[in-house]
Design a protein around this nucleic acid. Sequence first.
DNA 1: TCTACCTTGTGAAGGATTTCACAAGCCTCG
DNA 2: CGAGGCTTGTGAAATCCTTCACAAGGTAGA
Lengths: 210, 210
Amino acid sequence: MKRIAESSVRRLSLYLRYLEDFEQRGHKTISSEALARCGGTTSAQVRKDLSFFGSFGKRGLGYPVPALAVELRKILGIGRDWRIVIVGAGKIGSALAQYKGFRQHGFTLVGIFDRDPARVGKKVDGVTVRPMAHFDADLRKMKPHIAILTVPADAAQDIVDRLTKNGIRAILNFAPTGVTSRDDVTVRNVNMALELEVLSYALVHTRDDG
Amino acid sequence: MKRIAESSVRRLSLYLRYLEDFEQRGHKTISSEALARCGGTTSAQVRKDLSFFGSFGKRGLGYPVPALAVELRKILGIGRDWRIVIVGAGKIGSALAQYKGFRQHGFTLVGIFDRDPARVGKKVDGVTVRPMAHFDADLRKMKPHIAILTVPADAAQDIVDRLTKNGIRAILNFAPTGVTSRDDVTVRNVNMALELEVLSYALVHTRDDG
DNA sequence: TCTACCTTGTGAAGGATTTCACAAGCCTCG
DNA sequence: CGAGGCTTGTGAAATCCTTCACAAGGTAGA
């Protein structure tokens, strides 16, 4: 299959969110125009995004809401019972562990790790924090698909390497540093400092008087 | 000045992170090639990114580390004492409030708000949580430049509207929903569910056997 | 069934970003 | 001082992404 732009995948995820809204409100069909307005894009963009994966709409009518939601979930791989581990049980790690959206979207938290002995053994959202000494062995047992990193910057790269060595192919990195890895590993960096700096740049460089 | 791509601004922020590392380790100069390797890009990209703002390097030698860091901070608007408010003092909001990087990067947390009376009055990182009843008046007093949203999805759009009405022009939205606003307001959406779905997509669609 | 109207799906055009490739400039060393 | 070796800065080419525009196909109502 043709490679799909990441920006396109992000939009599909957004569309799904809005479809779930529309579904709950009992709408049967939705036009690309309406979806576009929700997601802040254009109707042509919506149709093009969807057309990469098939023809889901009916001309003259729009897209069937529940069926399209099912398709998008299939495309995005939602509902496959992905297993997740969180590395770093600090403030952010614990907060994320309690995120209700995990279960809702078909992700299961199977393990939390921390290098600080004071945190080991505590329970976060029903999952016991485990020590880094067991990390590699635990990973081999748990066979997680996705790892969420909420560790300090200096630890991030090492953890990524160990995760990769143990077969993890998808990493969501909240550490305030970029990390690199093999080509077959997908890493998404989420970095508050960086986002703030982008906002700072925008504040400095936006003409708001013209 | 010509409009700069957002992707370019994000990279500048990354470069700055690495420059700070290099500076601490006492390096005097760095080549575009070395910076590129850190940031997972190409040397041509680094040079192009920087060239939008000026000529900071010396041919044959590279870029002077401390001077380039100073320039990048100036470009990104870092060190201007931006005032930040956090809306939503739940798990994520409180965790972010305690983020050490704020001060380090020249951002000052001036207020935290929550609609839950049980949370009002508590102190988070030295800042007292204030009720939403005072929201608009407080904003006018505090004059924050940037707002961080960590509220439930159903509250997000209303808060964005109130922030905008009170002069905020930069919003970092952690609520699990997209929000829309006026053209002169910069909104960055950070959405863990969406990032997980992008990873899920990658896991499903990546050939790792070829 | 026929007409009027609506919305999709999609090549092609347009725009934006990234990569290429190389002249120009700086340093070092003999 | 001149040669050799690096590395920047930058037009041009290539690639990637978005928008346009319209034929094709569907609905609804008479």
